[in-house]
């Protein structure tokens, strides 16, 4: 499997606190990678480094073989790195349809309204196209986040706790969506506390604790790892 993303030796400090120390991961094209770890272990910081929202103090990020360390977040979005946010960040005053027009227009799409409508249909949000995004329910917001993230035809999607705050059946809905997106060839990195989702979704799991990777491998093996159980599952 060729790597779509390679992170090598990333270090990030906030003042005296080391959020990430020498973290290296790689994501294969079309892979489903789950990332677990206790709160504050550095998962979101790592995703912010990948997406270009924060600059690491050391280490490198390569996307499809290209060094993207110097690229700002918007450039990374345009070359194919998409993300959804832990707390949904809709363009709340805009219509659901216009939320999707933004990434489509930035990506140079020929027919943004038409493509946006097709995406909404695909994500089951079409009946809500004219609604203000700020008026959506939690699960609708999660779907909108994902639709907006993949509007620019990314090769990598970072899903940051997309299941947080959802009910059981809603979790299944979002999980189905992520699996469908992956089936279209988008590599998905899923940060999640919901172990049921991680186990069902991931082909490989990485566990981060205190800014370091403490285990990596097939889901069953990582969950059974004594270090992981101690750090994350509290057993």
């Amino acid at each position: 499997m060729t790597a779509v993303l390679e992170v090598t030796g990333v270090v990030k400090r906030f003042g005296g606190f080391t959020a990430l120390s020498e973290v290296s991961i790689s994501v294969g094209a079309g892979e489903r990678l789950g990332i677990i770890g206790p709160n504050g272990s550095g998962k979101t910081t790592l995703m912010n480094v990948i997406a270009g929202r924060i600059r690491p103090d050391a280490g490198g990020v390569r996307f499809e073989g290209r060094d993207i360390g110097a690229l700002p977040a918007w450039r990374r979005a345009r070359i194919g790195i998409a993300r959804s946010f832990q707390i949904p960040l809709p363009f709340g005053s805009m219509s659901v349809l216009d939320n999707l027009r933004v990434p489509l227009e930035q990506g140079g799409e020929a027919d943004p309204p038409g493509r946006a409508a097709a995406l909404l249909e695909d994500f089951g949000l079409f009946p809500r196209a004219a609604a203000r995004a700020g008026d959506l329910s939690q699960v609708e917001l999660r779907k909108l986040e994902l639709a907006r993230a993949v509007a620019g035809n990314p090769r990598l999607l970072i899903s940051d706790e997309a299941m947080a705050g959802l009910s059981g059946s809603e979790i299944d809905e979002v999980l189905e969506l992520l699996l469908r997106l992956n089936a279209r060839g988008i590599a998905v990195v899923m940060i999640e506390h919901m172990m049921r989702a991680i186990m069902r979704f991931s082909g490989r799991v990485v566990c981060i604790e205190a800014g370091r990777i403490i285990a990596e491998g097939p889901p069953d093996a990582v969950v059974a790892d004594p270090g992981v159980r101690r750090a994350y599952l509290g057993a």
Binding site: W74, A77, S93
Partner: peptide, 24 residues
């Protein structure tokens, strides 16, 4: 225009706008 929608996106969430490819 797309320019105006990009500005509205910035107003609503600068981080999300950037993640949508808007050079904020």
């Amino acid at each position: 225009s797309a320019f105006g929608r990009a500005l509205s996106a910035i107003r609503d969430s600068e981080d999300a706008a950037e993640a949508c490819g808007v050079p904020t």
